[in-house]
């Protein structure tokens, strides 16, 4: 009802539209639309955003029901590197396995030489 306080036409409420393409897929954000209420929003969402695209489910959410991040909060998402909890922090493992493999192979060769 913030809209009415602003003196703007309450017909134009903002709804965010989400959908699922496949039964086992994630819900994805699509776009927003203006509608006077959620019943109308959902019936309009279908043809505005899924005329060609497939959807197995559609959700509409009043935008003012969503708590978003402020810009400061978004900046805080830019993380320092935390290598220790990501796979890329362990890029040396392959080489170390290879070293063991080589050692083993060489060892076998030495044995072969001794036998001969």
């Amino acid at each position: 009802m913030d809209e009415q306080k602003n003196g703007l036409n309450p017909f134009y409420e903002e709804f965010e539209v989400f959908s699922k393409k496949k039964e086992d897929g994630p819900l994805q954000y699509q776009f927003s639309l203006l509608a006077p209420n959620e019943e109308m929003a959902i019936v309009l969402a279908k043809e505005n955003f899924f005329r060609r695209e497939k959807a197995v489910d559609i959700w509409v959410v009043r935008r003012n029901a969503i708590r978003k991040l402020s810009q400061s909060e978004k900046e805080s998402l830019k993380k320092l590197d935390k290598h220790y909890r990501e796979t890329k922090g362990y890029a040396d493992l392959n080489q170390r396995w290879r070293n063991f493999k080589e050692k083993q192979d060489n060892g076998t060769d030495e044995k072969k030489v001794e036998k001969a």
Binding site: F11, L34, A35, V43, L44, K46, E47, N48, R51
Partner: peptide, 11 residues
């Protein structure tokens, strides 16, 4: 009456 409705009606 409404752009969003125009699209839906046309379908």
């Amino acid at each position: 009456p409404h752009i969003e409705e125009d699209v839906a009606f046309s379908s």
